[in-house]
Design a binder for these strands. Structure first.
Lengths: 332, 332
DNA sequence: CAATAAACTGGAAGCGCTTCCATATTGAAT
DNA sequence: ATTCAATATGGAAGCGCTTCCAGTTTATTG
């Protein structure tokens, strides 16, 4: 592997000059630039990124830390982020935190130690305090799908309460009064906010919220099915079930079908997120849209603007959910 | 940020000694080790990984390059790989290639330049020749879901032909004779192999393969739906459709349902991969299992064994698909 | 054409660590 | 005690680059 030194020798210039053309500095004459470029090509020179990072404390890469690497939500988010960064000539370094505080901090340290220029965090186990402290460090970052008021200008999040509200309101408008709710882990901010919105819509319609119609799931498909089984086993009556994400909704439908229920004739279902697969379920799932793409784009643009000084644009931190009406809800 | 230098000063030993305890070298007395550790704690010392990489040409991380970051197949693979590496105390650096040769090579260079100790490649646009040449370089790597005979001991792949064969055979056993096939891109190895297996099963049963029953999709859900529409529009008759992956099968079912077909009464469907969601489709999708987890594990173990000398174990390169019988296929 | 500013170039230090080599210390064996 | 190997430690070079500073060249102006 050729080094900058060999390039400088071949081109007949100094190390500094080679470095300057490498970094597109001003104040390099056209002539030396040409000589250097020619030498680089001849030697098939490739800069050593590690050495550059050590000397400059930069890396031209942004670290992305997610709870999980699989699942439609994380997949879509990762894809969008990576694409947006790639367009801007930056590299994404992705790693996973597994919703476990130690692992998440470990992943965070890894990315910081690798001198990522900035971080995008989609994690839920690390505490607010830790992140607030982190914001005083040297590595700039944004937080996705979470709002920490002390550093809310670094946060990009959905109006989850509105989402939960819209879903419940829609069911109510369709004539449902007995509405079961399968939530995500109630330790997570998004879960509780969605549930709050749900309750708010019920209250507005003077429908009491019944604890017996609530099942706390874990956002995974299986827990939707478990939820339905739980509700049925406890002899709850309901004509619709609202789920805190699409995967649980799909699991819930599967569970209902195991009991020979007709969907949506005997029971309506509504999801949350508008994951790509919802359109391919049967019946097609009515759900709440989570503008994953927009959020991914906005967060990378924040970084391009604030860290790389590339763009000048307006930043929106909160995103608005919307109802996507399909076929899993019936008038009651 | 404290450096090794400050640690050595505080501990009253040399730089080399600090480095030795940092790297768990032999020949360090218990006493100096204790002094150094104490100093590190007191200074809250964190090694600079970049500097270590530069000096040692190692990074304690393995690069993972995938075609896409989303979708159940890639998601599951990434998750398993990351988990396996994490268990072994190694870090995964993930990046995407988007099935585009330039992007893939770009990602590859990125990972190599970052001095990853090894690479895991799940890509399809980079040519065999390029990878063969790469195998003569300094960065060891494995290739997933692809078999290049010149370097087949670096390759981990499914017996795709057997998979295609098993699916078709099962349909035939259930009495189907007119079987449509929705394939992946026929430029991709796995697609053509699966199709070959399909044809083989037909031939064994003396059923002629009809070009008119073949639709070339792209592995995405939508193309399954497009495939069904295409087949219907061209007035093909068939009682079953085999798909080259589960997403297209799900799209195909959706398409069939748009035409008011009953599934599986009027038409049977079989998928490929056994993605997690197939169990939650309605009807539950009969499919071919792709042991994603096993493959991910095996490939990381190859690295642990050959690069990090951690494990000593037998390596299997080819994995065997299996039929998963569920409810989307009916006796004909 | 001199004076001055602007553009360009080279030298050298330094980023934080690893690793080789040489020297010093220890302990076991004679 | 003496010798020799094994073990432990320090010094210093070097990984490949960036960046500051000082010095040199070129262009600009009156």
């Amino acid at each position: 592997m050729a080094t900058i030194y060999e390039v400088s020798a071949l081109a007949g210039v100094s190390l500094s000059s080679v470095s300057r053309v490498l970094n597109d500095h001003e104040h390099v004459s056209k002539k030396t630039k040409e000589k250097v470029v020619a030498a680089m090509n001849e030697l098939n020179y490739r800069p050593n990124t590690i050495a550059r990072s050590l000397a400059s404390n930069r890396s031209n890469s942004v670290g992305v830390l997610v709870s999980e690497l699989h699942g439609p939500f994380f997949g879509a988010m990762l894809s969008s982020i990576e694409l947006e960064l790639r367009k801007a000539g930056k590299h994404a370094v992705i790693t996973a935190g597994h919703s476990d505080e130690e692992s998440e901090i470990n992943g965070l340290d890894f990315l910081i130690d690798r001198k990522c220029d900035a971080l995008i965090l989609l994690v839920d186990a690390i505490s607010d305090d830790y992140l607030i402290k982190l914001s005083k460090g040297n590595t700039p970052f944004v937080i996705l799908n979470r709002n920490i008021s002390e550093i809310s200008d670094h946060c990009f999040y959905l109006d989850n309460e509105l989402g939960g509200y819209l879903a419940a309101k829609y069911l109510i408008e369709q004539g449902h009064k007995e509405i079961a709710y399968i939530s995500g882990p109630l330790t997570k901010q998004d879960s509780t906010e969605r549930l709050t919105g749900h309750k708010k819509a019920l209250a507005e319609a003077n429908i009491p919220f019944k604890e017996s119609l609530l099942y706390e799931g874990d956002y995974l498909t299986k827990s939707g099915r478990d939820g339905i089984n739980y509700l049925i086993k406890h002899k709850s009556t309901f004509t619709a079930v609202a789920c805190s994400n699409d995967e649980m909704a799909s699991g819930a439908m599967r569970g209902a079908r195991d009991h020979k229920w007709l969907i949506p004739e005997q029971c309506s279902f509504i999801g949350f997120d508008n994951a790509f697969f919802t359109e391919y379920l049967y019946p097609q799932l009515t759900t709440i849209n989570f503008p994953v793409n927009d959020m991914a784009k906005m967060s990378t643009q924040w970084i391009l603007k604030n860290v790389y000084k590339q763009k000048e644009l307006d930043i929106t931190n909160m995103f608005i959910p919307e109802l996507i009406e399909r076929q899993s809800v019936k008038k009651n």
